[in-house]
Simulated assay, not measured.
Amino acid sequence: MEKTYETHAMWSHYFLRDKFFGYIRTTSQCEGINSLIRFYVNRKNTLIDFMHNLDRALKEYRNNELITDFKSQCSEPVMITSLEVYERSASCYFTRNIFKEIRNEIQRARALNIKVLSTTLDKVEFSVTTLGDPAKDRRVEVDRSKNMFSCSCKLFESRGIPCSHIFCAMKFENIIEFLDSLIYKKWTKNAKNEFISTEMPVNDDVERVLKF
Rank of each mutant, 00 (worst) to 15 (best):
R139L: 13
L131E: 13
L112F: 05
S118F: 03
D137P: 00
K146V: 14
D122G: 00
R103G: 00
R110F: 09
F94H: 02
N104M: 10
R96C: 04
I106R: 01
K136N: 15
I98N: 07
L121Y: 08
R96H: 10
E125Q: 14
V140W: 02
V128C: 03
A135C: 09
D122E: 08
I106E: 04
S145P: 06
V78A: 11
A90N: 01
V85I: 13
R139I: 13
F99D: 01
S82D: 13
S145G: 06
I80K: 15
I80Y: 05
A90W: 01
K146F: 13
A90K: 00
C92R: 13
C153H: 04
L83P: 05
P134K: 06
C74P: 04
E105L: 04
R96V: 07
R138I: 09
K154Y: 04
P77F: 08
V116E: 14
E87S: 00
N113I: 01
L112D: 03
A111G: 06
F99Y: 15
F126I: 05
N104F: 08
K100N: 12
K146G: 05
V128L: 05
E76L: 13
L83H: 10
R108P: 01
G132A: 00
T120W: 07
R138E: 13
V78P: 02
V85Q: 07
S145K: 14
E125W: 07
K136C: 15
E101H: 15
R144S: 10
T120V: 10
K115N: 14
C74Y: 15
V128W: 04
N113W: 03
S145I: 06
K115F: 08
Q107W: 08
K136P: 09
P134L: 05
G132E: 04
D122K: 06
L121C: 06
I80P: 12
F99R: 02
F94Q: 01
L155R: 04
